[in-house]
């Protein structure tokens, strides 16, 4: 998927040079005042590449050496936070991908950054790992009070715990806004009905979108729903369920991008 997610992150972190525009973090320009800009940033770029021949703890110690005032207690605290306390003395080469990912987060938050940048943090994790990671990130955002920037192509994942999204397609920003906003914007007034027999409904109400024998969708505003129910009940149609149809981020994405076309 060459859409420029990792490249964007590398630009933000000063790992690649910027040809036009500029990146500022905490008010500092990443190119001109690199050391100031990067000071309060923690990051994992691409894979959580750690020194495999060192233990998890030694890896964290190396990072701690490069910042002022990171105490042993802070390291222990972070280790506990990412739930690695049982394996922290093992060599990283013996870690699973999920553990490496968590160690990567540990080294990124050791110096209490106010911006944490993660590149596909759930990539390659099993469902349980994904769940743990999600909890960890939500936890971090609350406890350590940091903004977390995540790049991902897993939209369902982002839908679950992100507040703001920026959609990049073929290297261009298509959308930047709150998730709830996007959903609202793209949402139509679709209502989902579950009834005993759809065929009977067809005769009463036109414009229904039949899904299967029991379910259909209809595009009416929320205010009109009671009226519709009344009408159906009058005609002796058995209604089991009525609910507004939820838009996922994925739907919104496709609506915004018009499908996944690489130009």
């Amino acid at each position: 998927m060459v859409h420029g997610k990792t490249t964007t992150i590398k630009l933000i972190l000063g790992l690649q040079s910027i040809t036009s525009g500029k990146v500022t973090i905490n008010g500092y320009d990443i190119e001109k005042e690199f050391t100031h800009a990067i000071k309060k940033v923690g990051a994992i770029v691409e894979n959580p590449d750690m020194y495999m021949y060192l233990s998890g703890y030694q890896n964290l110690k190396l990072v701690a050496n490069l910042y002022k005032g990171i105490t042993k207690e802070r390291i222990d605290e972070v280790v506990k936070l990412v739930k690695l306390e049982n394996r922290i003395q093992d060599k990283v080469s013996k870690y699973s991908l999920g553990m490496r990912q968590r160690l990567g987060i540990a080294q990124a938050i050791l110096h209490k950054p106010n911006l944490l940048i993660l590149d596909e943090p759930t990539n390659g994790l099993d469902p349980e790992g994904i769940k743990e990671m999600r909890e960890l990130l939500v936890d971090l955002a609350e406890k350590e009070k940091m903004a977390i920037l995540i790049s991902s192509h897993n939209l369902a994942e982002l839908d679950n715990f992100c507040t703001k999204v920026c959609i990049i397609k073929n290297g261009e920003v298509i959308e930047t806004s709150e998730i709830s906003e996007i959903k609202k914007e793209t949402s139509q007034n679709l209502q989902l009905f579950e009834v005993a027999d759809v065929n009977l409904v067809k005769n009463i109400i036109k414009d229904i979108i039949v899904i299967d024998h029991h379910r259909f969708k209809i595009n009416v505003p929320r205010e009109n729903v009671p009226e519709m129910i009344e009408k159906l009940v009058e005609n002796k149609i058995k209604i089991y369920e009525v609910k507004p149809e939820e838009k996922t981020l994925e739907d919104a994405f496709f609506e915004k991008t018009g499908g996944n076309v690489i130009e």
């Binding site: 972190l13 690199f34 990067i38 990051a43 990072v63």
Partner: peptide, 9 residues
């Protein structure tokens, strides 16, 4: 990458 995102030129 670990090294280059630390606050050192």
């Amino acid at each position: 990458k670990l090294l280059l995102v630390k606050p050192y030129t």
